[in-house]
Design a protein around this nucleic acid. Sequence first.
RNA 1: GCACCGGUAGCUCAAUUGGAUAGAGCUUCUGACUUCGGAUCAGAAGGUUGCAGGUUCGAGUCCUGCCCGGUGCACCA
Length: 598
Amino acid sequence: MPTLLPHSLLEQRLRQAVLQVLPDARPDGVKVRPCPDPKHGDYQCAALIGLAKEARKNPRELAAAVSAAYAALRAGSGEEGVEAGLQIEIAGPGFLNFRLAPEALLSAVLDASASRFLEPAAAPRTVVVDFSSPNVAKPMHVGHIRSTALGDCLSRVLRALGHRVITDNHLGDWGTQFGKLIVGWKRHLHRDALERDPIAELERLYKLENAAGEADPARLDQARQELVALQAGDPENLAIWREMIRLSQAQFDALYGRLGVTFDHTLGESFYNPQLPGVVESLVSRGIARESEGAVAVFSDHTLPAKEDPFLVHRDGAWADDPALVRKSDGGFNYTTTDLATLEYRIRTWAPEEILYVVDDRQAPHFRKLFQIFRRWQPEAEARTVLRHIGFGKILGDDGKPFKTRSGDTVRLAELLDEAVERARKLVDEKRPELPPETRGEIARIVGTGAVKYQDLLPNRQSDYIFSWDKMLALTGNTSPYLQYQCTRARKVVADGGAVDIAALRGVTPTEPAEVALLKHLLLYGLTLESVAAECRPNYLCNYLYDLAGHYSRFYESCPVLKAPEPVRSLRLALCGFTARVLSHGLGLLGIESPELM
RNA sequence: GCACCGGUAGCUCAAUUGGAUAGAGCUUCUGACUUCGGAUCAGAAGGUUGCAGGUUCGAGUCCUGCCCGGUGCACCA
């Protein structure tokens, strides 16, 4: 049985106690959480107040009864463990405050250190995470950071908690843009340019043909014909298309390599192409989709109130249809159809309990429609699977408008990472000129790429944030360089201090407030990761790590480690080691490396 | 027009999802140290949480109505 963290242990017994006092109560809502203010205690439970109200009892009297039941259960269990010296107080309107003895806190930390300070999920789930999804023949740009960083981090956190995670990069490798690209390829391709910078050349071809199409309808028509030929399996066009995918994948691989991001599967839109006619037929035969203005579309089934119905829109004073197209009037399919086929495939193949779509907030209406259609189409499969759109906001420049280069172009991801590493290098050169150049280069790589990711993961994902080189690379404040620095500092002390006999620390009493505060914070790591996973919010982890670094700094400032007499020296050295481990593990879950030196 | 997402200190952002006195960083001012890594730490200043109601033991968080900003609304994804 895995080691339980104190909040779980207290919560388990508290639920038993609640059931003794109120046999009809639902214990799920009884949660034990850290006290926001340490003066009230270490952990608290606020749920009894609500339960008292439901049961029409006096909250403080109920709290007293539950507390007594808790004490009896504890006495009867025979084993003390973390509860040795535990004090429970009733406060305010009926809060239960738990105070652990300092030795018990230390003991809990020693136990937790054996399982990386986290608890494996009691009920592991299979979760598919769909993220990044760049387009073939286009450069990855600043707009891909958020989906990639968020999706990768959520996948790592879910895995760390013991869930089975399947990551899938749903590439944009099929669709109308290939008509123009093939025309461009056939008419204007520069082979040498393609070899030098394939993506730039493909982008040039697309822009050229796009402009030509706007000026000359005949060119547009030609693009359409090439697309039809491609979709019909024309060998020449297929070969060109495959070559574009190969070149693009090389670009993606290089960038994912720099970012340390991997996928279990890369099943692009084209993978589902053969299924699309069948999807539409199935929808039509079940009466979910019907012909409309030459296209095939899904309309409202009027089971929801108009305001909540994704297939209705208010226009000119009345509710009008806002259908989802599953086949265009020219016979082509669009992304709703592809996404339905993808959804069906994922459920059939992996039987996940949950699918996360880490996609820009602007596509929220699309996902509401998609999930609704799927519920009508395959109700049994839908009932077994939680479908969640994990949306996020935009990246803005310091003028408050979408982040662009000075000349107004989109910022390429590769160039952005280059600049981050360059800027980090300047800082390292300035701070640590004595290190060999290759070491400084390696530190700059880790600090630069980490800073870009951390800046992205720190704000609430739903809000827009302002991109700032100075802030992300600042050495103070809530930034990845600061966390990385604290990590290397803690590691250095551990290295200088030598090995510690962890088992010998049992029974030692931490006395300094800074030691106790750090111990308590270490015990919250697992709880934080659960919140991150439950709400898909990596910023909780960022803030936890920043607080941890703060607790560590205060501890380190007020408590000498290497000069302290035993057993205090070993205790403090162990705290440095635990802090370094949690910091580097947490950064790792954010997809950020921790350098050995800084 | 309708829907979704936001609005918190001068600026950039938090707040364990309904908990106790709303917290950090930047900026400004003041301190600590003959450094176990100073890329450090402590203190001060800064608030009617857009506005007005409501729900209750308790609201930044929930419900209603307004105001401001962003985004989306049939053959692109």
